[in-house]
Simulated assay, not measured.
Amino acid sequence: MARLLDKYEELVHAEVQAVAARFDLSVFPKVRVADVLEPETLGVTGALKSYALASHFDFVICRNKFDTAYAIEFDGASHAAPKQIERDAKKDRLCQIGDFPLLRINSQHLSKRFGPMSLLAWLMEVHEMQLAFYEAQTRGEISPDEDFDPFWLMSMDPGEARFPYSFAAKARYKLQVLKKRGKIVDGHSSGFVGRGTDGVLHGYNFIRVTPETAITVKSSMRPHRFPAPLMELLDEILAVLLTEEVDLYLAGQIGALPVAEVVKRWTSLRSGLSMGSTHTAGFEGFPPPERRT
């Protein structure tokens, strides 16, 4: 007998089920795309219609037992193949036409490297709390001027992290401690997150360890048809990665770059990006902080 899920999909299913239990969600694996996004309703024909009838979502998440909310796709190594890229594009297009949220993940999203929960769990949980926040605003329970910020959500449960949705809280605090101990020059990082013309998010972070040298990290995040604060999440990930690199530097395992080279890279990497946020520790010869949307 064939298995419905492969080993990685089984891991995703377990992670999704754990979050679903907390928020009274239902999880259905291997659901036909046409049963969620009806071709006749969408008005699609030809190749798109055929694909919808023949393909499936890895997981469909429902509220109220059977009301479809969004889908999750696990993109393994095979998704780099040209034919699979074409299929994925068709699925993305159907979700775009149907205005249906789709979260594409890979094995990195199952790791707990960055905090007390996986990136997949973080995205799902933050999405649910974001919806609850906006519903509370609609009912007048929260001021309409207040913005949703998952990084300031505090847990009161014993044994849980104080700020469970702030991956970088401990990392940022560690950098401040290292500065106070005279191990590095800056207690805060400098960096930016911006969006390319293809929708991909790109981020760059650095921190001076001496007046003339700095440690840097960069990372990217693919675009998602999923309502979550992805720019902010990438900035959190960068802060964790940067602190790990600072640890390696202090252990003598890596070197640092001249600040002039770091600023040059900053300028080059920002070129062509639509800036989401920029922050600097502030030192002579560096561009001032800015924030644009």
Rank of each mutant, 00 (worst) to 15 (best):
V126G: 08
T278F: 15
A251D: 15
L175N: 14
A14T: 09
V33T: 08
G140H: 01
H224I: 02
E9G: 08
L230A: 11
D75R: 05
Y8C: 04
Y70P: 02
F151R: 15
L11F: 09
D58Y: 09
K65Q: 13
L37C: 07
W122I: 00
L4R: 13
R225T: 01
M129S: 00
V126L: 06
F192D: 05
R104Y: 05
M275P: 13
K83W: 11
R32A: 14
A80H: 15
L110G: 10
V126E: 04
G196E: 09
V200K: 14
K91R: 15
G203M: 03
M1E: 12
T243N: 12
F283P: 02
S26R: 08
E73W: 01
E10V: 00
V209T: 07
L94W: 03
P150W: 00
S277K: 14
G285W: 07
P229M: 05
H224P: 00
E245S: 12
T280E: 05
R225H: 08
P229H: 04
G43Q: 07
V217E: 12
R172D: 14
L123I: 03
Y249K: 12
N106H: 07
R3W: 04
A14F: 06
E125Y: 03
V259Y: 06
S143V: 01
A239E: 12
L119H: 08
S118C: 04
A121R: 11
E160L: 09
F28C: 06
E244R: 13
L94F: 04
A14Q: 14
V263K: 13
E245I: 01
D92Q: 10
L234M: 06
I97D: 04
S78D: 14
P223S: 04
G282A: 11
L175C: 13
